[in-house]
Computed example of a mutant assay.
Amino acid sequence: MTVLARRAAAEFIGTAFLVMAVVGSGVMASRLSPDDAGLQLLQNSLATGAALVALIVALQPVSASFNPVVTLVERALVMIDTGTAATLIVGQVLGGLAGTVAANLMFGLDAVSWSTHQRTGPSLWLAEVIATVGLLLVIFGTVRSGRADRVAFAVGGYITAAYWFTSSTSFANPAVTIARTVTDTFAGIAPPSAPAFILAQLLGGALGYFLVRFLYPSIASSAVATADRKVFS
């Protein structure tokens, strides 16, 4: 198996398990705490953050972006080529959909059930821009400052917190957004709401890219180059 195939497989598997954590914990939370939305969100956010830490630690030696925006920023930073970026993004989107189907089936639901959970409005779109910018700063700031071994904990902690400080509960990921359209559960998002979320995430990605370039300019240091390769190779 080629290196690219292994990376695509890692992105597929990692994104699938991430979405299983998001959707599955959402279903479990709504069943265990049906009358307490705050407790549901706490359960959902803790499970997602913990899963992210574990998945990044496990798959980081192969590939552990799990997010098309992160992959696009890698491409913009010339860390990967266009063909690699496209392949990894396909793996992420398909993995996310597979994760939703698996979560639905685990909880006795239809494999695919279009969400009716409308999430729309300027406040939510702004939240997605901010959540995505913050995620990119956490990822690339940690890596480009030579602390790649801590990125899993930084990302897991940030996403757990962002569930609470953003009105959108911090999707910050187009692959996860697409995947959450096919589950009519606590974590779902109605298909008509998804495009605006994705556009907001892409805008956040562009802003995040420029901030990363400004705060962490390219440095011809072996430490930064090695850290980049460890996380994104």
Rank of each mutant, 00 (worst) to 15 (best):
A47G: 05
T82N: 08
T84R: 13
D110P: 10
A58I: 13
E74A: 05
T71V: 10
T100H: 02
G99D: 04
V62L: 09
G83P: 04
S123P: 00
G38Y: 10
S113A: 15
L41R: 14
L77D: 00
L72R: 02
Q43K: 12
V70I: 15
I56K: 13
A76H: 10
V69E: 03
D81R: 07
N44T: 13
L46H: 01
Q40H: 12
A54R: 08
W114I: 05
L52H: 02
L88H: 06
R75P: 00
L105V: 15
P122L: 15
G108M: 05
V53T: 07
L124N: 04
G83I: 05
A127Q: 12
F66R: 02
G108I: 04
L46S: 11
E74W: 05
H117P: 00
S115R: 02
S115K: 08
N44C: 07
T87A: 13
I80Y: 01
T120Y: 08
Q118T: 14
N104A: 05
T84L: 07
G108T: 06
A103F: 05
A37W: 12
N104K: 10
L126H: 09
L46Y: 05
A64N: 04
V69T: 14
A98G: 02
V57W: 13
L55Y: 01
G108D: 12
A111Q: 13
T71S: 11
V78M: 09
L88E: 04
V70E: 03
T71H: 11
I80D: 00
A54Y: 05
V73C: 04
D36R: 09
L109I: 01
A50R: 08
V69G: 02
L77E: 03
F107C: 10
N44F: 12
T120Q: 11
V57M: 12
W125E: 07
I80G: 01
H117A: 14
L94G: 02
L109F: 08
N104D: 12
L126V: 14
A54K: 09
R119H: 11
A50C: 14
F66N: 06
L59W: 01
T116E: 11
D81E: 03
L124S: 04
D36Q: 10
A37S: 14
V101R: 05
P61I: 11
R75T: 00
L59K: 06
G91R: 03
T87L: 13
G49A: 06
S115T: 07
A102S: 11
L97T: 06
M79F: 10
E74M: 12
I80T: 03
A47C: 09
L126P: 02
R75A: 10
Q92T: 01
F66E: 01
L105W: 11
L109R: 15
V93Y: 06
L41S: 13
L46E: 06
A76R: 14
L124Y: 10
G83A: 07
P61M: 13
H117C: 00
G91S: 08
G95T: 01
D110L: 15
L39A: 12
G108W: 02
G91E: 00
V112I: 15
L124C: 04
V70F: 10
A50N: 03
S113T: 12
L94F: 14
V90D: 00
T82C: 02
P122M: 14
L97Q: 00
D110C: 08
V53D: 01
G91T: 06
A64D: 07
I56S: 01
L59E: 00
Q92C: 03
S113R: 15
I80W: 01
A86K: 11
